[in-house]
């Protein structure tokens, strides 16, 4: 139970892959390959389940699927669901559900097309448990709310773990998510009738080649699975729930000590990004400053030559003794 308590820095989301009432060959393959990518944080529900999370909440099937999602989430400590279901109306339907605190946060539904399985692509595969690199290509991932949500959802699924350090040679594969060219009529703010561009998901293994510098040159080979997604229905997160979910922990004490969030004295960064320090030196004693020696300026030069020499040596003695005192 203690392992399931809320943590400041969270582990990767555990995903449950659920089969609906009817899954075709395509969806079975998609779920299997996605699980292979998500392992070891993946749980498979191999039996059929009556689940329709995007149906209206007030209908019997809608409300019961919400409650079963919540139940499964609490039982398995899972916070992500991938539901596969095919029907005449929505063929090869893949639904991503994200949870927060045991409640459904948001749902994205997409149809799968042009699926190529991992097995059918020859070549080496990534080791299970290795973190994937992720690549998103299109300006819509920064502008369009549907694609921002999709990006966030896929990152939560595959890459949502905060890690401090990583072994660079262990980065074996890339999940690339790219879009078809943006239609000119696509409006980013309102729900328009223009069909959303297709999403192309491809996976590649990386090969690091020498480039003559520390940074290697990367070449990619298709690994599989690859599929195209057509976005269908979705739900937006409840704003109150999202606000809670987006809360960040306060700065850690070590960060504060390092100077993050705390102002360090006499140190600042200048325009060029260089760290500049200020050093305070004691007040200079100008009375002992050696100026140009001139006969006429010597003390007692007019009175007596011998006296002057003795006085000079006397003062020297005084200085020496002072130094000694400082040393001791």
């Amino acid at each position: 139970m203690e392992a399931r308590q809320p943590k400041e820095v969270e582990d990767a989301r555990i995903a449950i892959f659920v089969k609906g009432t009817k899954t075709g060959e395509v969806l079975n393959g998609v779920m299997k390959d996605m699980m292979a990518l998500k392992r070891p944080d993946a749980i498979s529900f191999s039996k059929k389940n009556v689940i329709h999370p995007l149906d209206a909440q007030n209908t019997a099937s809608g409300s019961s699927s919400m409650s079963s999602l919540e139940f499964w989430s609490s039982k398995n400590d899972a916070s992500m669901f991938v539901i596969g279901q095919t029907s005449k109306k929505r063929p090869n339907d893949l639904t991503f559900v994200r949870m927060f605190d045991g409640k459904v946060l948001d749902i994205v539904e997409a149809g799968v097309e042009n699926y190529v399985s991992m097995e059918s692509v020859p070549g080496s595969k990534s080791t299970p448990g290795h973190k994937p690199l992720m690549h998103f290509a299109s300006e819509l991932f920064d502008t369009h709310p549907r694609f921002i949500q999709l990006k966030s959802m896929l990152m939560s699924l595959f890459n949502g773990e905060v890690v401090e350090s990583i072994y660079l040679k262990g980065l074996e594969h890339v999940i690339s998510v790219s879009l078809a060219p943006t239609p000119a009529t696509l409006n980013t703010t309102t729900e328009s009738t223009t069909p959303l561009p297709k999403v192309h998901i491809r996976t590649y293994t990386t090969r690091l080649l020498a480039s003559g510098s520390r940074i290697p040159r990367v070449e990619l080979t298709p690994m599989g699975p690859s599929m195209d997604l057509v976005l269908r229905r979705h739900t937006n997160p409840d704003p109150e729930l999202l606000k809670q979910a987006m809360r960040r922990p306060k700065l850690k004490k070590t960060d504060v000590e390092k100077g993050l969030g705390k102002k360090r004295k006499n140190l600042d960064v200048d325009e060029m990004g260089d760290l500049r320090g200020r050093v305070h030196v004691g007040k200079q004693d100008l009375s002992r400053l050696q100026t140009r020696k001139m006969k006429g300026l010597k003390a007692g030069a007019f009175e007596d030559g011998g006296d002057d020499g003795a006085g000079g040596s006397g003062s020297d003695d005084g200085e020496v003794s002072q130094k000694k005192r400082k040393l001791s």
Binding site: F136, S138, M155
Partner: peptide
């Protein structure tokens, strides 16, 4: 931090 890169260039 998330090993993620986003290409904001429009698709050719």
């Amino acid at each position: 931090g998330f090993l993620t890169v986003t290409d904001p260039n429009p698709i050719d």
